[in-house]
């Protein structure tokens, strides 16, 4: 019947069609289809890094854009993220083996008193997809956790997240402690979370406020490029 959708056999698609289909499947949060698509591309000899960037990150970027534009909402973004996570769990060990390029290193966590980690988990995933090594230190972190983790991980970037108006001021406590210890300028400090804005980011002495995961990736890349330029100048 013409009005019945035909089932798509992923392995019957050529590479370009498959990547396009995977981006659709990611948008629709279809975890099993993404897993299958990743495995097919690997069997066809695609490099893990190419699958990551051309299928998964590209697809997730569309999801992020539509979230920003109010076309998609949090549940759809979470489902897409779960699908991407399924694909990344296959690719991650392979990426480590094949020596994929690393742009920079980041420690990220939610501040003390706050247990909301959806945003920082999305940022972690997108940063990893963009070639950053990320240590996610989870929720409810006192300043010691941030500072110790950043030192131990040899981070370039320190990311802090908060969902609550009552917890976001703690970001300043962390930054002030970094200043006191003379290590503030060793790191690019990025902050994010629903109640924050650019003005708040500036006021607490962060390098930038990132309104969503895609912006976090672009901002991190920009700051890393500036840092490299400074070092090589």
């Amino acid at each position: 019947m013409a009005d019945e959708e035909e089932e798509i056999i992923l392995s019957d698609l050529d590479d370009a069609e498959l990547v396009e289909q995977m981006m659709d499947d990611l948008y629709d949060g279809l975890k099993d289809e993404i897993t299958e698509g990743v495995n097919i591309l690997l069997e066809r000899g695609w490099a893990p890094y190419r699958i990551l960037t051309e299928a998964l990150v590209a697809g997730m970027t569309i999801v992020g854009k539509d979230f920003r534009d109010g076309i998609l909402f949090v549940p759809e973004v979470l489902l897409a993220a779960n699908a991407m996570k399924a694909g990344m769990s296959i690719l991650k060990p392979l990426l480590a083996e094949t020596g994929a390029p690393t742009i920079g290193r980041m420690v990220i966590g939610t501040v003390k008193g706050d247990i909301h980690d959806i945003g920082q988990n999305l940022v972690t995933m997108m940063m990893e997809g963009a070639g950053f090594e990320v240590k996610n230190i989870g929720i409810n972190n006192p300043l010691e956790n941030f500072i110790e983790a950043a030192g131990e991980f040899d981070a370039d970037i320190l990311g802090m997240s908060a969902l609550l108006t009552t917890t976001m001021p703690y970001m300043k406590v962390v930054i002030d402690a970094m200043k006191e210890q003379g290590i503030r300028d060793d790191y690019i400090v990025l902050v994010g979370g629903a109640p924050l804005n650019e003005e708040f980011g500036r006021a607490i002495g962060a390098d930038a406020y990132c309104r969503d995961a895609a912006v976090a990736v672009e901002t991190a890349k920009e700051f890393m490029a500036r840092r490299h330029n400074r070092v090589s100048a």
């Binding site: 108006t165 976001m168 109640p195 804005n197």
Partner: peptide
Amino acid sequence: LIGYGDCGSGG
């Protein structure tokens, strides 16, 4: 009178 708290508006 505004019948809200801060309500996640971040100020």
